[in-house]
Deep mutational scan, measured.
Amino acid sequence: TELRLDINGREIKVDGADKETLKELLKLAEKNNDEKAIRIIRHLLER
């Protein structure tokens, strides 16, 4: 399955993203107070 998050109005594919990319996405999600995106990205970073 493909995991996509809508961050800042942009749909971004997050599964398969490297750790650096995920960290950047996490910063974006935190800036937007997007709890769902934050939770998902943190979960991916823990893998």
Rank of each mutant, 00 (worst) to 15 (best):
H43A: 12
L44R: 02
I40K: 04
L22R: 00
R42M: 13
D18P: 03
G16S: 13
R10C: 11
K31Y: 10
N32Q: 12
E30R: 13
K13N: 13
T1D: 13
R39M: 12
K23G: 06
N33I: 04
N32R: 05
D18A: 05
R42V: 11
R10V: 15
D6Y: 15
K36T: 10
L5V: 12
L28H: 08
L22C: 00
E30M: 13
T21P: 01
D18Y: 03
I40T: 08
I12H: 14
R39Q: 13
L5G: 03
V14N: 01
V14R: 01
K13G: 06
L22P: 00
I41K: 00
N32Y: 15
K36F: 11
L44V: 06
D18V: 03
E24G: 09
E46D: 13
L28G: 02
E30S: 06
T21N: 07
H43T: 11
A17H: 09
K27L: 12
D6E: 15
I41M: 02
E2I: 12
L45Q: 02
R10G: 10
E24Q: 12
R42I: 12
D18L: 03
E24C: 07
R10F: 14
K13L: 15
L26R: 01
L26K: 01
K27T: 07
I41W: 00
L45P: 00
N8C: 09
L25M: 07
G9D: 05
D34L: 06
L3S: 03
A17V: 08
I40S: 04
R47V: 15
L3D: 05
K36L: 11
L26G: 00
I40Y: 07
T1E: 12
A17G: 10
E24Y: 15
K31C: 05
K19C: 05
I7T: 03
R4L: 15
K27G: 07
A37P: 01
I38V: 10
L45N: 00
R47G: 15
L28M: 11
A29Y: 03
E2S: 09
I12T: 05
L28K: 03
N8G: 15
K31A: 14
E11K: 05
K36S: 10
L5D: 03
L22Q: 00
K23W: 06
R42Q: 13
K31E: 10
L44T: 04
I40G: 02
E2A: 05
L44M: 09
L5F: 11
I41G: 00
D6S: 14
L45S: 01
H43R: 13
I41D: 00
L22N: 00
E35K: 10
D18N: 09
G16H: 09
L3W: 05
K27H: 13
K13W: 15
L44S: 02
A37C: 02
D18R: 03
D15H: 09
K27R: 11
E35Q: 11
A29W: 01
I12G: 02
I12E: 06
G16F: 13
I12Q: 05
V14A: 04
L28Y: 10
N8Y: 05
E30N: 06
L45Y: 02
K31R: 12
K23V: 06
K19E: 13
K23P: 01
D15Q: 07
K31S: 11
E20V: 10
E11D: 08
H43K: 11
A37F: 05
K36G: 09
T21G: 08
D18Q: 03
K19L: 13
R4S: 13
E46M: 07
L5W: 03
N33C: 09
A29D: 00
L3Q: 05
E35I: 12
K36M: 11
E35S: 11
N33L: 08
N8D: 11
K31L: 13
E2P: 06
L28V: 11
V14I: 09
R42T: 13
V14Y: 02
L44E: 07
K19H: 09
L28D: 07
G9F: 04
L3P: 02
N32A: 15
A37R: 01
L28W: 13
N32P: 01
I12L: 05
K36W: 08
T21C: 06
K19S: 08
K27S: 07
I7V: 07
N33E: 09
E11V: 12
L44A: 10
D34S: 05
E30I: 12
E11G: 02
R42Y: 07
R10D: 11
K36H: 13
R39V: 13
L25C: 04
E46K: 10
D34C: 05
I7M: 06
A29I: 01
L22A: 00
T21H: 09
I41T: 00
G9T: 01
L44D: 00
V14F: 08
N33G: 12
A37Q: 03
L5H: 02
E30C: 07
I41E: 00
L5P: 02
N8E: 06
K19Y: 07
A37I: 06
G9V: 02
D15N: 13
E2Q: 08
E11M: 04
T21R: 10
L22G: 00
T1W: 14
A29T: 01
R10I: 15
G16E: 13
L5I: 14
R10S: 13
K27F: 11
I40E: 05
K13D: 12
K23H: 09
G16K: 14
E30V: 12
I12V: 13
I40R: 03
K19P: 08
A37T: 05
E20D: 11
E11A: 03
K23L: 10
R39Y: 10
L5K: 03
L25D: 00
L26Q: 02
K13R: 11
E30Q: 12
G9K: 01
D18S: 07
I7C: 07
R42S: 09
L3R: 02
T21I: 10
I40M: 07
A29E: 00
L26P: 00
L44N: 03
E30H: 08
L45G: 00
I7R: 01
I12A: 02
I7G: 02
G16T: 15
L28P: 00
I7S: 03
V14K: 01
G9S: 01
K31P: 01
I40F: 08
L26E: 01
K31Q: 09
E2F: 09
K13T: 13
R10N: 13
T1G: 13
T21Q: 14
I7Y: 07
T1I: 07
L26D: 00
T1L: 08
L3G: 05
R47T: 15
G16V: 15
D6M: 15
E24T: 11
D18K: 04
R4K: 13
T21A: 14
K31V: 13
L3A: 04
I41R: 00
L44K: 02
V14D: 02
T1K: 05
N32I: 12
R47P: 14
E24S: 11
I38D: 01
I12D: 02
L45K: 00
